[in-house]
C-alpha cells in the first residue's frame, strides 16, 4: 500500500521510495529510506497534508507526494 493510504496510528515500514528529482532527494535526506518505520500521526484540518512520525521526529508531507512511497503495515492493524 502507499503511505497516503496508511490508516492513522498504524505502524508501517517503508518498502519503496518513489518520486523523482528534488522531491525524492528530500524524502531520502529527511530519512524516508527503505526499511524505516513510520506512522501517520495526524491529518491536517483540511484533509491534507499529513503528519508522520519517523526516526523520533515529526515530518509533514502532502498526500500526492506520500502516494509515491510504498509501505508495508506492521504489527496490529488499526481500524481505519
Amino acid at each position: 500500500m502507499t503511505l497516503d493510504k496508511l490508516p492513522l496510528g498504524q505502524q508501517a515500514r517503508i518498502t519503496v521510495v518513489g518520486g523523482e528529482g528534488a522531491l525524492r532527494r528530500h524524502f531520502l535526506d529527511m530519512g524516508l529510506t527503505p526499511g524505516t518505520a513510520v506512522m501517520v500521526r495526524k491529518i491536517a484540518p483540511m484533509g491534507d497534508p499529513i503528519e508522520l512520525h519517523l526516526r523520533g521526529y515529526e515530518l509533514t508531507l502532502r498526500l500526492e507526494d506520500a502516494a509515491r512511497i510504498e509501505v508495508e503495515p506492521q504489527g496490529a492493524e488499526v481500524e481505519a
Binding site: 524524502f27 515529526e58 509533514t60
Partner: peptide, 10 residues
Amino acid sequence: NPVPFVMELP
C-alpha cells in the same frame, strides 16, 4: 519546480 513541501514539525 517548487521546493517540495517536506517539512519538519519541530
